[in-house]
Design a protein around this nucleic acid. Structure first.
Length: 952
RNA sequence: GCCCACGUGGUGGAAUUGGUAGACACGCUAGGUUCAGGACCUAGUGCUCGUUUAGGGCGUGGAGGUUCGAGUCCUCUCGUGGGCACCA
């Protein structure tokens, strides 16, 4: 019995396309449901079996919801701007537009092969000018707005200008980068450039000189979430801190809302925790410490104002502007040397040297405002310029870092917390009572914090504040393949937004993509840079996250040229009901999208505060990685490989561990993976440069087609190292879904990926289990067909037992789809098929609903069977089966009756009475009378549907 | 170092959320069948005691606790994975 998957799939793919089965419109009376996949970056190596995992899950939900009466928006598109395409262009000279288009076409075909129910007419690409016109437009809206911290909403910059004209900064409550006050006359006296600079302090998209993550190798700056462990996330190149004039987005203005609104989202706790840690809210106070003998004061941020009596010195970040001002002449040289050294250190070195204590005394003293004592002011790089105020009051008695610093430089330490009642507590733990702290003595810490806050506020020493770790997002990229920033500069350097009519501001064609120093390749096009009228264009482009921060809105109305999406479409589709994608976007894409969405909400352009109501993070499908040990130096002029087990006896510096094509390895993925003589030949066929290489096995040496055994041993085992890790091109272990589909069919591939385990778990790709799913599909098919491939569905009345199996399965499958447990759904199908097979079911009344039930999982064979059943149109447009609860209730249920949890007997009860009924309990008591004779019944516990337990 | 999540057979994983642990599948064992293929069918399969049977004991990383009852809740501990990392 053979099922011709290929022709079934071809036929239905064409039919779906022709009939527009998955086309949707917002002009529809049904309730909407929006299922979104994180759109892929179309890389050169195509999809591997790991990519579709989330797409299969979202497709199942889409099909299920569609059959269950919803109007389902389920679109797909491409995140098409970005570094890899440009790096590829640098290497090959092929224009990114061309390679990207090729990659997109390959991706689309691969996705089509898997039978996804996307509305392909809504496909978007972020590199399409019709799309990025609106990316640029939203950027300009950010440019034209500031954040009103009193009304908690974005407001037009024009209103801010009006305020400045009338009252200067008086009465203005706006999120800003640095403090600065002025009055109306000062504002009116400013030059346009000076006014522009002031406005940049408030705009939500602004330009300023700031310390940024500069990556020399990539020739661009990177946002914080694009840097991991001091190296670039893409490519792993070193990143240094550099002061540059850059565009940024004021995401910090939304920090509080981004944090607070997490509560209402149906995201995993892990995801919410990552985001809230990234936002990093801490409550505390800013306190002023006057500098002795100078008209200056140092403002510090602290979360522990209660420890202020223990503040015995102060530390400023080396870049802190006050350092130069307060340093005494005799400390000048030393301080300047320290500042220079700190500036030169790369981010990576700084992280590596965390445990090294360094710092320098400025010679200046400040006054502790509560003790009135003079305390020395130091500069040290353990204080960061861009957190808090860039300065701290050091409390060596209750902070481990301050303590270490004090001991290292022999500074005074005052113990302000008495922790004697908590022997296990460590320095910095918020337990204990205050000591050596004047009016705070004897208080518990929370009480002392509150008392100190009141004190400093009434005395005018400082104010309560909230700090966030979240930083503004650097928005400029000095690269070619991205959206041009639609800004022009006049001769004075004042930034001017382009008009909406001038958008899209198209990316000009270029054939030299080589990065050049600190400016974009676009700067090499003088005729493009010159915008006429003495204006010049911004040459930086937008970062990778620009387009993806709002693409889900464009799907709602992908064609409009007048708006980013029509108000009608947005009013109907509202937000994403279910979003599926990987955890790797936790702090990048998902944070920026939420920020943009909130801004658009403030503008009244979207109806919801949050873009993604429910988020599921699919796990990664991992691959087996096989490594071979290669000598770093050539041996006698030859490349030499060594068996893993022999390599283990040698110092590891001798070798490079190189990943090789997994499929040439025998027993790959096991501890006994090895290369045989034959597989060495396959390896050479794959990498001809190793034709001359020497392979030293456990039992001899293989060289140029000849195996020379040692000590007369026969056979060669060149053991390799197996590991489970990422699937991808560089590990030579990527499995293309197309080949799996060609062998087993798309339905089998889909169900297999779901069957592997819970959607949110990572798991290795393991082809052993796929046969089990393939067998199931054949068994399922054979419920409908006899051994001779004859159609055997009858009009027989189904038996009660058959109906029970069917409705039990419908109930479980519906419930499990609703809780996104797709692996158990597949199990339910298997169980039902096994049971129905045993009963010899051929009844249409059972098999017809069964086909509809499985349709979201196996879209192709369900269409084929549906057609044979004589159903009209596509099975995916029929109703999803509903279960009849009455069929599931048994007329008599036998309950175990237990005494003290020990089962004693069983008793029959009728189903329509709840076992909780007194009558039932009496029945139970009678049933166990002989065991409870003479004992008092203390209580009777009725476990619904389970048992009756009598405690004596 | 701090925060979060997770530990169930030989393997992937179920367990209606405190109610018969191990569904479903892989693998394995035995038997059958086949144009001999990595196909198909049937039965068995947590560990252990018991000659087979009947039956018993032990079992969800470890140690305690709550409960008539714990894989599930609480405390401690060990292990794995992830996030953050001089954040004052």
């Amino acid at each position: 019995m053979q099922i011709d998957y290929a022709s079934i799939e071809k036929k239905w793919k064409e039919r779906w396309e022709q009939d527009g089965v998955y086309r949707v419109s917002h002009d529809d009376p049904r309730p909407k449901y929006y299922v979104l996949d994180m759109f892929p970056y179309p890389s050169g190596s195509g999809l591997h079996v790991g990519h579709p995992l989330g797409y299969i899950a979202s497709d199942i939900v889409s099909r299920y919801k569609r059959m269950d009466g919803y109007n389902v928006l389920h679109p797909m598109g491409y995140d098409a701007f970005g570094l890899p395409a440009e790096q590829y262009a640098v290497q090959t000279g092929i224009h990114p537009a061309i390679s990207t288009e090729d990659n997109i076409n390959r991706y689309r075909n691969q996705l089509l092969n898997l039978g996804f129910s996307y509305d392909w007419s809504r496909e978007v690409k972020t590199c399409d000018p019709r799309f990025y016109k609106w990316t640029q437009w939203i950027f300009l809206q950010l440019f034209h707005h500031y954040y009103d911290t009193e009304r908690n909403t974005a407001r037009p910059v024009a209103e801010l200008i009006a305020s400045f004209e009338a009252n200067g900064t008086h009465g203005v409550h706006a999120a800003h980068s640095y403090e600065g006050t002025f009055d109306a006359t000062t504002w009116q006296a400013m030059t346009p450039k000076e006014q522009d600079d002031v406005l940049m302090n408030y705009r939500l998209a602004y330009r300023k000189i700031s310390y940024v993550n500069w990556c020399e190798a990539l020739g661009t700056v990177l946002a914080n979430d694009e840097v991991k462990d001091g190296v670039s996330e893409r490519g792993g190149y070193p990143v240094e801190r550099k002061a540059m004039l850059q565009w940024s987005l004021r995401i910090t203005a939304y920090a509080e809302r981004l944090l607070r609104d997490l509560d209402d989202l149906e995201w995993t706790d892990a995801m919410k925790t990552i985001q809230s840690n990234w936002i990093g809210r801490s409550e505390g106070a800013e306190v002023e410490f006057p500098v002795r003998g100078r008209d200056a004061s140092i403002r510090v941020f602290t979360t522990r104002p209660d420890t202020i009596f223990g503040a015995t010195f102060m530390v400023l970040a080396p870049e802190h502007p006050l350092v130069a001002e307060i340093t005494t002449p005799d400390q000048q040289l030393e301080v300047r040397a320290y500042q220079e050294q700190a500036a030169l250190r790369s981010e990576r070195e700084r992280i590596a040297d965390v445990k090294e204590i360094s710092g320098v005394f400025t010679g200046a003293f400040a006054v502790n405002p509560v003790t009135g004592r003079s305390i020395p002011v130091w500069a040290a790089d353990y204080v960061l310029m861009d957190y808090g105020t860039g300065a701290i009051m050091a409390v060596p008695g209750d902070d481990t870092r301050d303590g270490a610093f004090a001991r290292h430089f022999d500074l005074p330490i005052v113990e302000v917390i008495d922790r004697s009642a908590f022997p296990d507590a460590e320095v910095g733990d918020k337990v204990g009572t205050l000591q050596n702290s004047d009016f705070l003595n004897g208080m518990e810490i929370p009480e002392a914090i509150e008392a100190t806050l009141r004190h400093i506020e009434t005395q005018g020493l400082g104010v309560r504040t909230v700090q966030y770790k979240l930083r503004d997002a650097i928005y400029s990229r000095q690269r070619y393949w991205g959206e041009p920033i639609p800004i022009l500069y006049d001769q004075d350097g004042v930034a001017h937004a382009m008009d909406v009519q001038e958008l899209p501001h198209e990316l000009p064609m270029l054939d030299d993509f080589q990065p050049s120093g600190t400016s974009s390749p676009l700067a090499r096009l003088p005729e493009w840079v010159d915008a006429g009228n003495g204006m010049t264009r911004e040459t930086d482009t937008m970062p990778g996250y620009a387009g993806s921060s709002w693409y889900f809105l464009r799907y709602m109305d992908p064609y409009s040229d007048d708006v980013f999406a029509s108000p009608e479409a947005i009013a109907y589709w509202k937000d994403v009901d279910l979003y599926i994608g990987g955890t790797e976007h936790a702090v990048g894409h998902l944070m920026y999208s939420r920020f943009w969405h909130k801004f658009l909400y403030d503008k009244g352009l979207v109806p919801t505060v949050e873009p993604f109501r429910k988020l599921i993070n699919q796990g990664m499908i991992q691959g087996v990685i096989e490594y071979l040990y290669m000598y770093k130096e050539k041996v006698d002029g030859y490349t030499k490989f060594l068996c893993a087990r022999l390599a283990a006896q040698h110092p590891e510096e001798l070798f490079a561990r190189i990943p090789i094509l997994v499929t040439v390895v025998e027993n790959y993925g096991t501890p006994d993976s090895y290369l045989s003589t034959r597989s060495i030949e396959q390896l050479i066929a794959w990498r001809p440069e190793y034709e001359d290489a020497i392979f030293e096995c456990s039992k001899g040496v293989y060289h140029r087609g000849t195996f020379t055994p040692r000590d007369g041993a026969a056979g060669s085992h060149l053991y390799t190292d197996s590991e489970v890790g990422k699937m991808g091109k560089r590990y030579h272990n990527a499995v293309n879904p197309d080949t799996v589909v060609a062998e087993y069919g798309a339905d089998c591939f889909r169900m297999y990926e779901m069957f592997l385990g819970p959607i949110d778990q990572s798991k290795p790709w393991d082809t052993n289990n796929i046969d089990g799913v393939s067998r199931f599909i054949r068994r399922f098919w054979n419920l409908f067909h006899s051994d001779q491939d004859a159609w055997q569905v009858t009009e027989n009345e189904p038996s009660g037992e058959e109906l029970k199996i069917l409705h039990g399965t419908i109930k479980r499958v519906r419930e499990d789809i609703e809780r996104y447990s797709f692996n158990t759904c597949v199990s339910h199908f298997m169980t039902a098929t096994n049971e129905l097979k045993k009963l010899g079911t051929t009844s249409r009344a059972i098999l017809d609903p069964l086909v509809r039930l499985i349709a979201p999982f196996a879209p192709f064979i369900s269409e084929a069977l549906w057609e044979q059943l004589g159903g009209s149109g596509s099975v995916h447009l029929t109703d999803y089966p509903k279960f009849d609860a009455s069929l599931l209730i048994e007329s008599t249920i036998t309950y175990p009756v237990c005494i003290n949890g020990k089962k004693r007997t069983e008793a029959d009860f009728t189903a329509d009475a709840s076992p909780a009924d007194i009558e039932q309990v009496v029945l139970a008591l009678e049933a166990v009378q002989k065991w409870i004779d003479g004992k008092t019944v203390r209580k009777v516990i009725v476990v619904p549907k389970r048992m009756i337990n009598i405690v004596v």
